[in-house]
Amino acid sequence: MKKTLWLFCLKRLASLPIILLGVSLLTFFLMRIVPIEPAEVILRLSGVTPTTESIRSLEKEMGLNLPLFEQYWLWLKDVLSLQFGTSFVSKLPVAEELLSKFPATVLLAISSFVLALTISVPSGIISALYPYSLINKFVRMLSIISVSLPTFWLGFMLIYIFSIQLNLFPTNGTGSLAHLILPTCTLAIPIIGLFTQTIQTAMTQELTKPYIDYAYQRGLSKKTIIMKHVLKHTLTPLLSLFGLTLGNLMAGAIVVEQVFSWPGVGRYLIESIINRDYPVIQSYVLIVATLYVCINLCTDILQRIFDPRIKESTYD
C-alpha cells in the first residue's frame, strides 16, 4: 500500500511541469490579448500624457519591444531562476515582492480556515444528529444566510458594529491580534455556512447506511459510532473541498484584503491588474497553480490514507 502511494505521488509530481508549462503559456498569451499596452497605462496612471517617444522608451526598458516568443522565453528563464521576472512598476524582482506579501495572506488564510473548521464541524454534526430539532433549523438558516452574504458588505458591517459602535477592534491594518479578528471572521463566515451544510448533508446520508444499524446491534455506543466511524466516512470525501477552500484562501482574498487594508497578495494582484504589470500577474497565476496542484495532491494522499478503498486505478 505504501509503495503504491509513493508511485501515485511521483506520477502526479511528474505531471506538474507539464501543467505549469501549459498555465504559463496560457496566462502569458491571454494577457497579451488585452487591448491596452502596459507602457501607456503606466504613463497615464502617473498623470503623464503619453508621447510616442515616452511609450517606446518605456517599452524598451520593460522589454516589450521584443518579439512575443522571446519575451516569453526571457520570462520563463527568470521563472526557472526563481526570480519570476521584474515588476514593470516597482522594478523589483517579482519573487521578492510576492514573498513579502505571502506571509500576511497565509496568516489570514490559516486563521480563517481553522476558525471555519472549528465552528462548522461541530455544528454540522449536531444538526445532522438531530434532524428535526430547532438546532437543526437554526443552523441551516444561519448557514444559508452566511453563504449568501456579499463579502464586502459583511466586512463593512463588522467594521461598523465592532469597530465604530463597540470600539473593540481597529477598522483596518495589521500589527496585532486585534487587527486579525475582523478580517478572519469576514473570510470565515461564508465558509462556515458552506462547510456546515456540506457536512450535515454528507453525515445525514452516512447515518442511513446499513453499517450503522449493524454497529448499534453490535452494542457499540452512539459516541463510538459517531466519532470513530461516521465522522471518518463523512469527512474523508470532503477533504478535497477543504483543500480547495484552503487553496482559494491562500490565493489571496481580494475583497477582504481591500476592505481591511490587509497587505497580502490579493491586494497586490488587484493593483498589478490595474497597472497591467504583466510579470506580476503571470507569476502570480503560476504560483497559485502550483499551490493548487500541491494542495490537491496532499488531499488525495490523505484521502488514500483514510480510505484505502480509493485505488490507484482511478488515475491510470
Binding site: S163, I164, T171, N172, S261
Partner: peptide
C-alpha cells in the same frame, strides 16, 4: 495606506 475609500471613511470615523 488604506486602499478602499469606504475603509478610509470608517477609519476616520473611528478616529484612527
Amino acid at each position: 495606506i488604506i486602499p478602499d475609500s469606504e475603509s478610509i471613511a470608517l477609519a476616520f470615523e473611528n478616529q484612527e
